[in-house]
Amino acid sequence: MRSPARTAWSALALSAAFLLAGCGNQADLAKVTHPRTVVPAKVAQKPQPNTPPRPVEPAFASERLRAVDPCQLMDTPTLSQFGVPATSRMVALADCANYMKDGSGKRLSITLRLGQNVTLLDTAKTTKVGGLTTVESTSTTTCFVKSITQEGSSVIGIVAQVDYEGDSCDVGRRLNETVINRIRTNPPLRAQDNKGTLTVVDPCTVFPAVTATELVGGTPSLYPSDMYRCTWRRDSLAFGIEFNDATDPKDSSLNKKAQVVTIDGITGYQRKEDSYNASCRIEWLHKATTGGRGEVVTVNFDNNKKGVEVDVCAKATTVVKALLPKLPKP
C-alpha cells in the first residue's frame, strides 16, 4: 500500500502544475504582536515553465542551502525568544522540528523546512520578511510562513510551519527573519565528515537525461518539488526520486507486505498499486544514521492512463539501476 505520507507526492507528480533548547521567564506570545508590511505591488511569481530556476540571492542557491544544518538554525538562542525550547530534531533531510512550550506553558510546535516547494494562489498577498518576498497561509491554529528563495520553473523557499494557539504567524515571521539573516551572514553548516551523505546531491541533475527520455518515450518535463524531490513527466507517464531522513525501510510498517528485491547490490522494498493508477514504489536504505533511521531513497513510477499496459515495476527498476552509480558511496 502506498505510504500515506507521500500520497500527495504521487498526486502532484501527475498534475500539470504541481503543486518545531532555553532559560528565563518569557512573556505570553499571544500578547505580542509584530505588524507585517504588506506589499501589494510585489506579487510572488508563480512557476514559469521553461525558465531555469534561479535563486533570488546567491546565498539562497540550492547548493548552498543543502550545506546548511536546519537544526542548528533551530538552536536554543533562536527558539528562546518564543518560550522554552525542547530538543530540535531532524524530521527530513532539510527539515527540523521542535515541540516546545511558550512562556505561559502553552504548546508551541515549530517545523523549519529549507528549500521546500511553495504553492502560490491567485489570491495570495505577499509580505516582506528578512527582505524576501513571503507568502502566508493558515489552517486553524497552524500558520505557514513561506519566504521565497528561488523563482523560475520551480518556486521554493524557507518555510516555517507553526502550530500554536497564540499568534502562530507572528512566530513564523520572526523565526524566518532570524533564519534568513543567519543564512546570509554566517550559516551553520552540516558536518563535513559525513561520508556518502545524500544531503549534497541534487536528485534533479544526478539522473541521466538520456535514461529519462528512454523511460517515457520522449523528452519529459522536469518538476523539482524541493531540494530532495524531483519528478519527470510526459503525458500519462511519470517517475520521481526522493531522498529523505526516515525509518529504515526494512522496519517500516508500510513495508510489511512489500516484495523484497535485490537490484545491483542493494536490498529494496517494492510495492505496487493499481487502485488509482498503476504505480510502483521501490525504496532502500542508502546510509544508516541513528535510532533505526537513515538516509532513504524512494523511486516511484506511475502510469495514469487506463487501458495502456506499462510494467511500472520494471520501469521503476530501470530508474534504480540508472540512479545507483550516480549516488555517493556511504
Rank of each mutant, 00 (worst) to 15 (best):
V308K: 01
N50D: 10
S153W: 07
Q72F: 03
T149R: 02
D193S: 12
T119K: 11
F243Y: 08
N25F: 10
R271G: 00
P325F: 05
Q192N: 14
I180V: 09
A13D: 12
V129P: 11
E151Q: 15
V319Q: 01
K315L: 11
Y269A: 01
T318K: 04
N304T: 10
G291I: 03
S153R: 14
N181F: 08
D202Y: 07
Q116G: 12
T76W: 08
K287G: 04
E151V: 07
A11R: 15
A278E: 02
A86G: 14
R89Q: 12
F60N: 01
G166R: 01
T267P: 11
Q81V: 07
S137T: 08
D264R: 04
V171T: 04
A86V: 03
V129K: 00
Y99D: 15
G196H: 10
D251H: 15
T219P: 11
L120R: 08
D170T: 13
D302V: 00
S154L: 01
A316Q: 02
G103F: 06
G196V: 03
W9I: 04
A97C: 10
V38I: 11
N176F: 10
I241C: 04
A191H: 09
G172Q: 01
G115M: 03
S3I: 06
K46L: 07
M90L: 14
V32S: 07
A8C: 06
V162H: 01
V320D: 11
A97D: 05
D251G: 08
V216E: 00
Q48N: 07
P49K: 09
R66W: 03
Q150I: 12
D264F: 02
L323E: 05
L79C: 09
S3T: 08
V43K: 13
C96H: 08
F144K: 01
R184W: 04
T213E: 09
G291S: 15
T231C: 03
V261R: 15
A160F: 07
S62L: 05
L29C: 06
T141E: 05
E165H: 09
A16M: 09
V56M: 09
L285F: 06
P58M: 04
E214R: 15
V201A: 02
K326T: 13
P249L: 11
A314T: 10
A322Q: 02
A94R: 09
C280Y: 09
C313V: 09
V159C: 00
T37S: 12
G172D: 06
R54I: 00
R173K: 12
S139L: 07
E63A: 10
R173W: 12
L120N: 10
M1S: 15
I266K: 05
Q116S: 10
R36E: 08
R281T: 03
P58R: 14
M100F: 06
E283N: 13
S3V: 05
G105N: 07
G131M: 14
C96P: 14
N176E: 09
D28K: 04
R234W: 11
P224C: 02
V261E: 15
I180A: 00
A59I: 03
N194W: 09
K125T: 15
D122G: 15
R173L: 10
R173P: 15
A314F: 03
F207M: 04
A27E: 15
V135P: 02
R184H: 09
R89S: 10
A11G: 06
V129L: 06
G105I: 09
R293L: 08
L323N: 00
F144V: 05
C280T: 04
L132T: 02
V261F: 08
T317L: 03
A41K: 08
T317V: 04
Y269R: 13
E165Q: 13
